[in-house]
């Protein structure tokens, strides 16, 4: 597992898995979309609009997952002086930002027909908007300082401060009254979603994970090369 903390080993490992991961993400995305559009049923309440969920929920999960990865790498990089952690942070921040943006846009398109509004300032929507702004600030930090050693540390500390937003997003629907409904899947009890709708959701989530890994491999490799040439 040393490829997770060492640039050289990462490069070797990434070259092996890149093609399979790329093929897998394309195949999974096609299969997932076929399931989402043709093989899954209409919801009893929302009709066909429920299909937005198959893009909205995976991108929401991925936006949180990306930030979680950045948080872990920030702790390790700062505490154990591990340069690869900073490289990963710089590389994946834009990926997380894009997932957050997809989540916000698809949620907005879903909100208009269902709730009757594109956007409200309830706790869930606001905290996700804050997550997007945090991602933007991290990206700006990563491009604003001349000195790599300085900017990567500032970015990592900022990531740690911003990580407080993750539990707020997760539990916002339980702690406060929100227009957004509570979680369907993460409850300890049986998920309140039918298996025929769970299948496309899971396929799409795995597809999004593999798409994220594909872009991350490319961006991390680029970042490694960029830093070698400074």
């Amino acid at each position: 597992m040393r490829f997770l903390i060492n640039s050289k080993r990462f490069n070797v490992f990434a070259d092996i898995i890149f093609k399979p991961v790329l093929v897998l993400s394309i195949v999974l995305l096609i299969v997932g979309l076929i399931f989402a559009f043709f093989l899954s049923p209409d919801d009893y309440q929302q009709g066909s609009t429920v299909r937005i969920m198959y893009v909205h929920v995976p991108s929401a999960w991925l936006s949180l997952m990306t930030y979680l990865i950045m948080t872990v790498y920030s702790i390790i990089a700062l505490a154990f002086r591990m340069p690869f952690g900073f490289i990963v942070n710089t590389a994946v921040a834009p990926i997380g930002a894009i997932f957050t943006l997809v989540c916000i846009i698809s949620g907005s398109l879903w909100g208009k027909p269902m709730w009757g509004t594109w956007w409200v300032w309830d706790a869930r929507l606001t905290s996700v908007a804050v997550l997007f702004i945090i991602y933007l600030i991290i990206i700006f930090i990563n491009i604003s300082f001349e000195n790599v050693r300085v900017r990567e540390k500032i970015a990592a500390i900022f990531i740690l401060v911003g990580s407080i937003n993750l539990p707020i997003i997760k539990f916002s629907v339980d702690w406060w009254n929100t227009l957004h409904q509570p979680a369907t899947i993460s409850k300890l009890s049986k998920p309140s979603i039918d298996p025929s709708m769970m299948t496309p959701l899971i396929i799409m989530t795995i597809a999004f994970i593999f798409i994220g890994i594909t872009i991350a491999i490319l961006r991390i490799k680029t970042e490694i090369i960029t830093r070698e040439n400074i």
Binding site: D43, G47, W115, T117, Q181, T184, I193, D194, S196, M197
Partner: peptide
């Protein structure tokens, strides 16, 4: 002034209903 509909966290095919 404004009415928003709230939907719950349950998803079910319309045929099952």
């Amino acid at each position: 002034k404004t009415v928003f509909a709230k939907h719950d966290e349950n998803y079910m095919p319309s045929s099952i209903k």
